[in-house]
Design a protein around this nucleic acid. Structure first.
Lengths: 237, 237
DNA sequence: CGCAGTATTGACTAAAGTCAACCCTAGTGG
DNA sequence: CCACTAGGGTTGACTTTAGTCAATACTGCG
C-alpha cells in the first residue's frame, strides 16, 4: 500500500509511536496515474495536495520566466515530492513525470491536521523536507565545483543509494531517464553527457542503459564522484 | 533585540498568535561574536544549537572528502542559518563567518519544545526551512543553466531583495564578501568573476565595491539574471 | 615602510557547447 | 508483415566560454 511506503521512509529517520503510525496510514488520498511527459503540478499554482510517488520517476523543474527549464530534483517511489508545499503552497516549480507514474495525492489539510495533532509527525515531515534540502545543497555544490564526469558519477552514485533504500538495487538499479533529461539534471548538454557516459562505460565504471544503470565498479564510481552518502542521512535519528 | 529580528522574519510568512509571539521572544540563547574567517559550526559535528545571524555575513559550505569547499548558501542578519539542524543534527556542511559576525546560539531543545507546544510555531519553522530550500533549488537551477553573467546578476538581484526585506537597502546594499568567496558561490573562478563584475560595472548595471553593491540599473540587472523573486516567497501566508 | 590579502589584467589552454549528420529502435499504419 | 517515422542516442568538426598561469597593482594595517 502506498502510505505504508511513505511510513517506511519516515521511520528510517524518525521514531513514531503506534498511534502516530496508525494516523499516518489513515491519511486520505487519491491514487492517480500520470502519463509520461506530463506536468502534474504546474508553476504558478496554489497547491492543495502533496504528491507521494508510488511508482515511476518524477523530475522537479525550476523555470525562469524565459521558459528555460532545469531539473533541480529527481523523485523515486517513496518520495513525497512536494511535501514542502504544505507550508509553501505557492508553487515555483513543476512536477513532471519522466515515465508513466502512479502517485497518491494527499490533501494539505489532512497533512496539516496530522502535524498539528502529532508533534512527532510534524517533526518527521519537517525532517523529510530537511533531507530534501540537503540533497539540493549537495547538487548545488556539485554543479558549482565538479567537472562533467564528477557530476554524472555523483548523481549515479546518489541514485544507487536512494534506490537501495527502497530495495530496488542489486548490481544496478532501474533508472528510466533519457539522456536529455539526465543532461538537464547535471547541467550539461545532451551531447556532452553522452560522451561522459561513454567514458564511464569504457572505463568499466558504470553503464547507463535506457532504463537501467549497471554498476560495474562502485568503488571507482564513488571516487570519481567524490561521493559521501552522509548528506542523505540514511538511518539517523 | 535579536529574537525580535527573527520574529519579524517569521511573521512575514506566518501568522502567529500573541502567545506564540511571546513564547518565541522568551527563547533562551547565547550571544556570541565570531571572528572573521572562522567556522563556527563544523562538518561532522552533532549540532545542539541553531544559529541566528544578528549582524554580519555567513556562508554555508559544503565539503567533499577531498577538502574542496563550495558555498551553497549565504546568510544575512535575521536568518536562522541552520534551523534545519533541529531535525537533522548530523552536520554535513559548515557555517563560516565572512565578516566579524554576531550570532545568537539557541538550544535545539528549546526550539523543539516550542515547536511541540505550539503547532503554529512548528509550521513557521518548517516554512522557514522550506524557503531556505527554495533558494537552494534556485541556485541549483542557476548553476545548471545560466552563464557566468546570468549567475552573478541573479545572485546580486537576490541579495538586493533579501537585504531589502531587512530594511538594509536603498540605492544598493551592504555586501561585504570578497571576490574569491563570491566566485565560490556562483561556481566561477575568481579571475572570471572579476571580468564579469567589470562588465556589469561597464554596462552601468551594478558595481560591486569591496563591501557594498551599488545598483545602477535594477531593471537590467533583473533581466540579465532572469530574476523572479517569487521563489523567495516574500510576504505569503 | 613593507607585508599580506585582495583585485586586476593579459596570454594561453582546456572543457564544454554548438551544429550537423547519421544510426538505431520501437511503434504506427498501410 | 513490412515500410515509414519519430524520438532517442552517437559521433565528428568546430566554436565559445571559462579556467589556468603569471605578472602587476592596490589597500589597509602592523
Amino acid at each position: 500500500m502506498a502510505l505504508a511506503l511513505y511510513l517506511r521512509r519516515l521511520s528510517e529517520r524518525s521514531q513514531l509511536g503506534d498511534e502516530e503510525r496508525a494516523a499516518l496510514l489513515a491519511l486520505p488520498g487519491t491514487a492517480t496515474l500520470v502519463d509520461v511527459d506530463r506536468d502534474f503540478v504546474q508553476i504558478g499554482e496554489q497547491a492543495h495536495h502533496a504528491c507521494l510517488i508510488v511508482h515511476g520517476l518524477v523530475a522537479r523543474f525550476a523555470q525562469t520566466r524565459n521558459g528555460d527549464r532545469s531539473i533541480v530534483a529527481l523523485h523515486i517511489p517513496g518520495d513525497m515530492a512536494d511535501l514542502h508545499s504544505v507550508v509553501a503552497p505557492h508553487v515555483t516549480w513543476a512536477l513532471h513525470a519522466l515515465t508513466p507514474t502512479r502517485i497518491l495525492r494527499i490533501p494539505h489539510a489532512a497533512l496539516r491536521g496530522l502535524a498539528e495533532r502529532h508533534p512527532g509527525i510534524a517533526a518527521a515531515f519537517w525532517r523529510d523536507c530537511a533531507v530534501d534540502a540537503s540533497i539540493l545543497a549537495r547538487w548545488t555544490a556539485n554543479l558549482g565545483r565538479k567537472d562533467a564526469l564528477g557530476r554524472v558519477a555523483h548523481l549515479l552514485a546518489e541514485m544507487a543509494v536512494r534506490y537501495g533504500l527502497i530495495g530496488q538495487r542489486d548490481g544496478g538499479y532501474p533508472f528510466p531517464i533519457t539522456q536529455v533529461d539526465l543532461a538537464d539534471a547535471v547541467g550539461l548538454t545532451p551531447v556532452h553527457l553522452n560522451r561522459v557516459l561513454k567514458r564511464l562505460a569504457e572505463d568499466g565504471i558504470a553503464v547507463k542503459d535506457p532504463d537501467y544503470v549497471r554498476l560495474l565498479d562502485e568503488q571507482r564510481l564513488i571516487r570519481a564522484g567524490e561521493f559521501d552518502p552522509a548528506y542523505l542521512q540514511p538511518g539517523r535519528g
